[in-house]
């Protein structure tokens, strides 16, 4: 079996901050109240949908921020019980809720502000039954969680839930070890940036600019 390097490519020219990817993730994974694994952030002014500059010389972009599934993840190194670990076959950084002792060392180590969230209380939900996919691992109080790259969908040979809902058709998913994959072609052909490259974490998320 050839190892994959699963990656996400986001085209910021097409992204319109609609939040559909965030809500798809929320429902698919039955996220507890106030928990968001994917957040839509404004690049520009200091409020959502606000640009930098002074009217009318303005500029605004959006990025979506979730676990970067780094090749050299800071979080995996520091987890004392190995609850967070990198899957060697796909490159996905995974989280085992049963092992997590809630020390939140991973949250301190991860440079990507806010991609990891801690269940500070017993998970609550807006409806009284589980929404989303039945195969999602139940959430636990006092453990850390984050984007799983929809592991339960990968297991069904499906892309993460945030991919197909993108209104702008701005999200792409695939294997960077396959030069024919869409993601490989995109980053070969287009200009892109990555977040915090100087940290040395080698994230697997690319933003086309």
């Amino acid at each position: 079996m050839v190892d994959k390097r699963l990656a996400i490519v986001v085209d910021t020219k097409r992204c319109i901050a609609c939040n559909s990817c965030a809500v798809a993730c929320k429902i698919e994974n039955n996220l507890p109240n106030e928990v968001w694994w994917n957040r839509i952030l404004n690049v520009g002014g200091s409020n959502m949908d606000s640009p930098s500059g002074t009217y009318p010389n303005l500029s605004m972009q959006t990025i979506t921020l979730s676990c970067q599934h780094c090749e050299n993840p800071a979080c995996v190194k520091v987890c004392p019980v190995g609850a967070t670990y990198k899957d060697p076959e796909t490159g996905v950084v995974r989280q085992d809720y049963d092992k997590c002792i809630g020390c939140r060392m991973c949250m301190s180590a991860c440079p990507y502000t806010g991609v990891r969230s801690f269940n500070w209380e017993e998970p609550g939900y807006h409806v009284d039954f589980a929404v989303g996919d039945a195969d999602v691992v139940p959430h636990q109080k006092h453990t850390v969680e984050k984007c799983t790259m929809c592991w339960h969908r990968l297991a069904k040979d499906l892309q993460p839930a945030c991919m197909e809902v993108c209104i702008g058709r701005a999200r792409f998913f695939g294997d960077l070890n396959d030069p024919e994959s869409e993601v490989s072609k995109l980053i070969a052909k287009r200009q892109y940036i990555q977040l915090l490259p100087e940290m040395g974490t080698k994230p697997s998320v690319y933003y086309l600019v």
């Binding site: 106030e34 957040r39 839509i40 952030l41 959502m48 990507y112 806010g114």
Partner: peptide
């Protein structure tokens, strides 16, 4: 914050 961009805050 490394990435202190405005976004949803709860």
């Amino acid at each position: 914050a490394n990435i202190g961009l405005p976004g949803p805050v709860g």
